[in-house]
């Protein structure tokens, strides 16, 4: 039996949330304005991801150039101090490579890459603290980073995880829930109900996917609202600066 009461009969989770509650979500744009063209920071509970975006710019290697569209390159770095045990992660780790590939593919849908052919956009994601799956945090941070860099995009992609305790979906799982339960990461484009990213960890029964997806999509919309707020705040502050 698990060490924790994952979902108590009273309806509370290990950290005191109910099934449909997000962790405290905090985000900001332009956090590293001098270091890159666009930057953002996202905190979901205690997990924290920083994103810096360079580009669109002249490709460093001509071989990776595409004459039709801009090339999106994502590098994920996980800080050695990000989890409870100190471990060194190298960027060629299989999991991280898979993660960056997934991110590239997800954003290929919304980034209007054809507007800047023969360029590349380099996205660096730094996972500073991980609590639960880092995929959702990376998607959100990358989305804000791209917006901050002024990369033309169709819409936001907001993302959140959902774990399944038997038949009950739990929104935005932390690391205890993630390690004990099968979980999904879902990304939704804008205010639509269109899931542009669905990744499942461990096996999930087919008939349980539907309620989990529903909850995750609702969660993504809430995340979208919070991010939208922050984008507007950033925009206003830029406007103020220009006026001054």
């Amino acid at each position: 039996m698990s060490r924790y009461e994952i979902y108590s009969p009273e309806g509370l989770r290990v950290d005191g949330r109910r099934y449909n509650e997000l962790r405290y979500f905090k985000c900001a744009l332009g956090t590293h304005a001098h270091a890159a063209d666009g930057s953002a920071m996202v905190e979901m509970g205690t997990s924290q991801v920083v994103c810096t975006v360079k580009g669109p710019q002249e490709p460093q290697q001509r071989s990776s150039m595409d004459t039709k569209k801009a090339v999106l390159r994502v590098n994920v770095h996980v800080a050695p101090f990000s989890s409870i045990t100190r471990t060194k992660h190298t960027s060629n780790e299989k999991q991280l490579q898979e993660l960056s590939m997934n991110l590239e593919e997800t954003f290929a849908d919304v980034v209007l890459a054809h507007l800047a052919p023969r360029t590349e956009i380099i996205v660096d994601l730094h996972v500073l603290a991980q609590d639960g799956n880092i995929m959702a945090g990376c998607v959100n941070a990358m989305c804000l980073g791209l917006i901050d860099a002024g990369v033309p995009m169709l819409d936001f992609i907001a993302s959140v995880g959902v774990a399944l305790a038997d038949s009950v979906p739990l929104l935005d799982p932390n690391h205890i829930e993630c390690s004990e339960l099968p979980n999904l990461t879902v990304g939704v484009t804008g205010k639509s109900n269109k899931a542009s990213l669905v990744i499942a960890e461990k096996r999930i029964l087919l008939d349980r996917i539907k309620p989990s997806l529903d909850l995750a999509i609702m969660g993504c919309k809430t995340v979208h609202d919070i991010m939208d707020e922050q984008v507007r705040i950033r925009l206003n502050s830029l406007e103020d600066r220009i006026k001054r």
Partner: peptide, 12 residues
């Protein structure tokens, strides 16, 4: 179904 956000004050 609604997804709720948590406020900063509620976190210990």
């Amino acid at each position: 179904m609604i997804a709720k956000r948590s406020s900063k004050q509620s976190v210990a």
